[in-house]
């Protein structure tokens, strides 16, 4: 029997047959709830929620970023990089995806690629509210030599 978390490990999400659909507001609510779960360090539950959301949304970059941040929180930087790269492919103009990718690359020891990703995020969002500021603060953190 197919369940909500039947997403394939490769990222090919399988959408289960359901007698209803989610509205945009409900999808937003579920994403925000998953982010809260992650911030409460209930990483397994947050991962289940993000994975279950994948087949239900057309633009999958946000759940993929969520999955990447969970891997990042677990210290699995290689898996986080995979998720964030996948998110940049889903939404090539997402500053948030590039900012997270830059952060994960930096923590994974790929400093040059990290700088490129953070620079790209800053270019995509010069105003800063959608990931540009995050890229700038991560860059400042890296430049301070604290990592």
């Amino acid at each position: 029997m197919m369940t909500l978390d039947d997403s394939h490990p490769s990222g090919d999400a399988i959408r289960p047959e359901m007698p209803f659909d989610f509205s945009v507001e409900e999808k937003r609510f579920l994403i925000e709830a998953a982010l809260l779960m992650r911030d409460c360090k209930r990483l397994d539950e947050a991962e289940t929620m993000f994975s279950a959301l994948l087949p239900w949304v057309e633009d999958q970059h946000l759940p993929r970023i969520g999955l990447g941040t969970i891997s990042f929180d677990r210290g699995d930087f290689d898996e986080a990089i995979e998720h964030f790269e996948s998110a940049t492919k889903d939404a090539s103009n997402s500053a948030l995806a590039y900012a997270h990718l830059g952060e994960a690359l930096a923590f994974g020891g790929h400093r040059e690629e990290a700088d490129l990703a953070l620079e790209k995020a800053t270019q995509l969002d010069p105003a800063g509210e959608s990931g540009g500021n995050m890229a700038k603060t991560v860059k400042r953190f890296l430049e301070s030599g604290l990592l």
């Binding site: 925000e32 982010l35 057309e58 946000l62 997402s94 900012a99 500021n133 995050m134 603060t137 604290l146």
Partner: peptide
């Protein structure tokens, strides 16, 4: 102190960006 301040700034900017992305989610 500098480290705490920087980490705090990074966390805030991450949270703000995530909330902005959720608001613009379609």
């Amino acid at each position: 102190s500098q480290m705490y301040s920087t980490i705090s700034n990074v966390s805030k900017s991450k949270h703000d960006a995530a909330m902005s992305a959720v608001r613009n989610f379609k």
